[in-house]
Computed example of a mutant assay.
Amino acid sequence: MSATTTPLLTSYRVTWAQKGIDTSHTEVCIVDSDDMTRPGDPEQLHALLRRMLAIRHLPIGYAVPDNVVLQDVAPLCNCEPYPGENCAWAEHKGERFYLTTSQAYAGSEVIHDRHNNRIVGIVSIGYSVKFLTMVREEVGHQ
């Protein structure tokens, strides 16, 4: 990173379980862009999250990333480093973008931006969640 660029902190709501144990937990993890050599690579992100969770939550002797099973990783608000803190979308769980069923196009969903009430895209139902996830990761609250 250049000296003039500040790191980007992104919050994730992570549901996980310890390998071999059925009880799941949900935590908020904050990832610093400086910790990522390949920004946007989900495999690297998941490895980083597993390492963070293992160190923080698993007992000594089990605190290795391989003992953490990620069940769900959802990006949260990136307009502030901590979710809900001065966030304009806190009442929407920190999510600026959302899906609705398209009335004009059968089999499609519409991705809306709460910021300006504009449509970001109209996408086939089969791709809408992936597209919504990409928009949230790329744009967030910027």
Rank of each mutant, 00 (worst) to 15 (best):
A47C: 05
R96H: 10
Q103W: 10
Y105R: 15
R96T: 08
K93S: 13
H92V: 05
G84N: 06
E85V: 15
G61Y: 04
Q71C: 06
D66V: 13
L99Q: 06
A74C: 05
A88T: 10
A88M: 10
L53A: 04
Q103K: 15
R51F: 08
H57W: 12
N78Q: 07
N86F: 11
L58D: 11
R56Y: 02
C77M: 04
A104C: 03
P83S: 08
E95C: 07
A90V: 12
N67T: 05
A63I: 00
V64M: 11
L48V: 08
L48M: 10
R56D: 09
Q44I: 08
A54S: 11
V69G: 00
F97V: 04
L48R: 07
R50F: 00
R50G: 02
I55D: 13
F97A: 04
L76Y: 00
A47F: 05
R51E: 15
P83H: 11
P75L: 04
L53Y: 07
I60S: 12
E80D: 13
D72F: 10
N67A: 08
E85W: 10
G94R: 01
R50M: 11
L45E: 04
T101K: 13
C77L: 09
A90C: 03
P65E: 11
M52D: 09
G84H: 05
C79Q: 08
H57A: 06
I55C: 01
A63C: 14
T101G: 10
L49F: 04
V69T: 14
M52G: 01
A104N: 12
H57S: 06
L99I: 05
K93F: 11
Y82W: 10
N86C: 10
A104T: 14
F97G: 00
T101Q: 13
I60H: 12
A104E: 15
A90F: 00
I55W: 06
C77F: 06
L70G: 01
N67D: 08
H92I: 00
G84A: 10
P81C: 03
V68T: 01
G84M: 10
G94T: 00
L70K: 06
N67C: 09
L53P: 05
V69D: 12
L99D: 03
E95Y: 00
V64R: 13
C87W: 06
R50A: 14
V64Q: 14
D66S: 15
S102F: 05
M52N: 04
T101R: 12
P59Q: 13
V73G: 07
H92Q: 13
A104S: 15
L45S: 00
L99Y: 05
L76M: 13
H46W: 11
G61K: 11
V64Y: 07
